[in-house]
């Protein structure tokens, strides 16, 4: 969701009246994507809706800065993840995850869906900062530096949080850990 390559980006950035068409266009084109990210981050549709609403209100107040930013999407995403962290600190909202999970047979589609559901719920049990790092990496597909910039932390902290987060998730799914530790060999590994 890069605004610079998006055909609607020109209309989004045109205009300085926050109540004008630029803000309207931004909300129309971006709210669904923001909601998807908020949903994965919070694990709750209601909380995600509140988070996006609050984020867009903040965006409205800072619209000129958002529109003038090099990457408005990154700016808005930063607002959202920081609001999510603030909210978590205030309310400590978590979605309780049921313990463990049954093994699913290979090819069992229902089991696969159930397993993924459990994985998402396990994700929600991670500490907020750790969860945010995992979501930014695997859902938003950001680099260490981009995540570090969003959260105001160092890239090494991002890497350690990410490693710990994945380790915790794997610990809850031992049946998958056997697979996960077998990293695919890369050609670069052979050259070393």
């Amino acid at each position: 969701m890069d605004l610079a390559t998006d055909p609607t980006s020109e209309t989004v950035l045109v205009g300085t009246n926050p109540a004008g068409t630029a803000f309207h266009a931004f909300v129309t084109s971006r709210s669904a994507g923001l909601y998807r990210g908020a949903l994965v981050l919070t694990g709750s549709p209601d909380v995600a809706e509140e988070l996006v609403q609050e984020t867009l209100e903040r965006v409205y107040r800072k619209w000129r800065a958002v529109a003038a930013a090099d990457s408005p999407d990154a700016y808005v995403r930063r607002i959202m993840v920081n609001l999510a962290n603030d909210r978590w600190r205030k309310f400590r909202r978590t979605v309780p995850a049921p313990p463990g999970g049954e093994m699913t047979a290979p090819g069992d589609e229902y089991g696969r869906i159930d397993s993924r559901d459990q994985l998402v719920r396990a994700l929600q049990n991670l500490p907020m900062r750790m969860r945010t790092v995992v979501v930014l990496r695997y859902f938003h597909d950001l680099s260490d530096d981009e995540i570090a910039g969003d959260l105001g932390i160092s890239a090494s902290t991002v890497r350690s949080q990410l490693a710990r987060g994945i380790e915790k998730l794997r610990g809850q799914f031992p049946e998958r850990s056997g697979l996960s530790t077998q990293r695919p060999r890369k050609e670069s590994d052979d050259s070393v």
Binding site: L39, L119, L123, F139
Partner: peptide, 9 residues
Amino acid sequence: LVSAMNDFA
């Protein structure tokens, strides 16, 4: 994990 998050979203 990526598939799970996308499915959930």
